[in-house]
Amino acid sequence: MSVSPPPFSSTSDLTPDATKPRWGTRWLGPLVLLGPAGLWLLLLLVLPTLVIFQLSLVPNIRPGDIVNPSGIDNYLLVFNPTNFRVIVRSLGLAVGTTLLCLGLGFPVAYWIAVLAPKRWRNLLLLGFILPLWTSSLLRTYAWITILRPTGVLNSILSTIGLPTLEILNRTPAVLVGMSYSFLPYMVLILYSSLEKLDRALLEASADLGATPPQTFWKITVPQALPGIAAGSLLVFITSLGDFIDPELLGGASSMTVARLIYNQFLGQTQNWGFGSALSVVLIFAVSLSIALLLKYGDSSATQR
């Protein structure tokens, strides 16, 4: 059987000009549709970002100073060892949180989307995202109550005769708090991705001799890859910007990029230029990771 691909349609090229809408009307539709959001984005995203970029080029700028871009000193400051370590630390925390959320979220999302009875799904999801309805600050304080030396966790541990844990004011507490905060997002996104999973593919895999674990790694995970990527990215970016959890749970070594940026604007020594440079670096790093992900993260996604 010879199946020839359909020839590229060239009808649009051959369409006589007379049938084309006039220039004005052709652009009117998109303009009306995109205009409001576009204006919104321009005013509240593009313009401020450009302002931040310009600020980042002024060394030692403080409120009241003239904005007069004059060099990249602020960027050199970003990469001095102290600040660079803060960035690396924040990236580490974000990556750790992302992995934790993925590890904890995937089984849950898989269970809700694939194994749980259909009529329970919405309720289960609702139950899972219920914590999002409370303030994030409240949730963080709840963790303090649980993790503090004489808190809920240690009371339980000592009641059942186990040694108590010193978690609060250490990095593990930050990871616990952040992954708890962002887990619902991960679960929601993974769920929507796994829900679309064609069960026939799993059966096909079993039919071809794959054991359930093999099917999971070779079929389920690749099929859910766009969801995994989207969820991870969302969690990564949000946790990179989080400073409530590190601040309240991280103890004496809680400095993160977000907090560092905050300090440059609202701290005791204001340095808007350096803060802006840090922001630009952060924006750049995040954009780059998104771009890389889009390009290489899921090559098969482009086939869909």
Binding site: N60, R62, T82, N83, R85, V86, R89, A252, S253, S254, M255, L260, N263, G267, Q268, T269, N271
Partner: peptide
Amino acid sequence: PPDVGEIYNRYWTKLTSG
């Protein structure tokens, strides 16, 4: 003075970033 503030700031960042 701002330049001294900068010094405090740097040490503080160093101290709190562990």
